[in-house]
Computed example of a mutant assay.
Amino acid sequence: MATRLQPAIIRKFIPPRKRDSRKGDNGKVLVVGGSHMYHGAPILASLAALRSGTDLVYTCVPKIITSSVRAISPNLIVIPMVDAKLTRGAANKLLGQTPSDLDSATIGMGLSIPDEEALKLLVKSLASQDVRISLDASAIVSYILPHLPQKNIVLTPHAGEFKRMSGIMPPSSIKERTSVVEKFAKEHSVTILLKGSTDVISNGNQTYVNPKNLASMTVGGTGDVLSGIVAGLLARNRNPLESAAAASYINGMAGKMAQKKNGLHIVATDLIDNIPAAMKPFDRITK
């Protein structure tokens, strides 16, 4: 039986911030994405991770777009990827440039991956460092499934990406959709956040649903924002299911706030602007 997400549940999933915490204590996130065409996707994910409360975000994008990405915001720490696509050489170089104490990473938004061994190398290397990982977009592929560390991975597909990964198109019925997600998550020991008008989040043993029903959130980039929130929360709450569920809820609330202001004419950055307000009810400071 799936549980509908409510504020009381989300409050348990978002850790409080310690009053005496220092830079880095509230999360260090790696974002790997982007290409010549899709330079905005990793920017959206990175800014969303920062707005979710992460202290440090390292944005790794192809060298050809680093200047453009850096120009968007002084808040981004940009790492140039040596190749225009994720090759084994680029993955090895990236692993040598990133901090050894990362908390989480999100991979795939706007990223071109011509070599499946490169993605395997990146995921397995980060996982061996106990980094929690979220995979999105081009990183949601069937060949990566046997190489995922059990129970420490979040996959955030929309229906088409889920079909590409599993061979199954999620049914339109929420009950049937939930059943398909639960079965796949259990079989592969991962957490699935299936995006849609109602998000379905499951690790195969426990399932949440988050009805959003926001016609405006079909605009491009809202999934990239979600990936950034997932990574940001994974950096603080190391539990993949709880982090994915909380991210779905926060992303949806930010979308509702944006739609209330702009009607059916929102853009993805409107969601980022509303993340602080969406998270404010859950902000707590402890000693």
Rank of each mutant, 00 (worst) to 15 (best):
F13H: 02
S227M: 10
R284I: 05
E161F: 00
S35F: 06
T191Y: 02
G89R: 07
I144C: 06
Q259W: 05
S243W: 05
D273T: 13
I133V: 13
E116S: 14
P7H: 06
I153T: 04
G33V: 09
V131F: 02
D115I: 05
G232C: 13
N239R: 00
G255W: 06
S179E: 04
L226A: 14
G196N: 04
L241Q: 04
V69K: 06
L234N: 05
T218C: 14
S104P: 07
L76T: 05
R177M: 03
G24L: 11
G160E: 09
L214S: 15
G33M: 11
K260M: 15
F184S: 04
V78K: 00
N26W: 12
P149E: 11
R22S: 15
L76H: 04
I72T: 07
N262A: 12
G160Y: 00
S112L: 15
K28T: 02
L102E: 00
P281A: 09
N262R: 07
S46F: 14
A105W: 07
T222C: 04
G221K: 08
G221M: 08
N210I: 10
V31I: 15
T191M: 13
M81H: 01
N262G: 11
K183G: 06
A48G: 07
V219W: 07
S52V: 02
I10R: 01
P170L: 00
L135E: 03
L226V: 08
A45L: 13
Y38W: 12
A268P: 01
V82T: 08
G223A: 02
S21N: 08
K256M: 09
H265P: 12
S128M: 13
K120Y: 13
T3G: 01
S243Q: 10
T106R: 00
E161Q: 02
A139I: 02
D224K: 04
L5S: 08
L194F: 13
Y143G: 06
H36T: 13
N210C: 13
V123A: 06
A48F: 13
T178F: 12
H147L: 15
A137I: 05
M169Q: 06
G196L: 00
L5R: 06
S173A: 10
V190K: 03
P157C: 15
N26C: 14
I133N: 01
L30G: 06
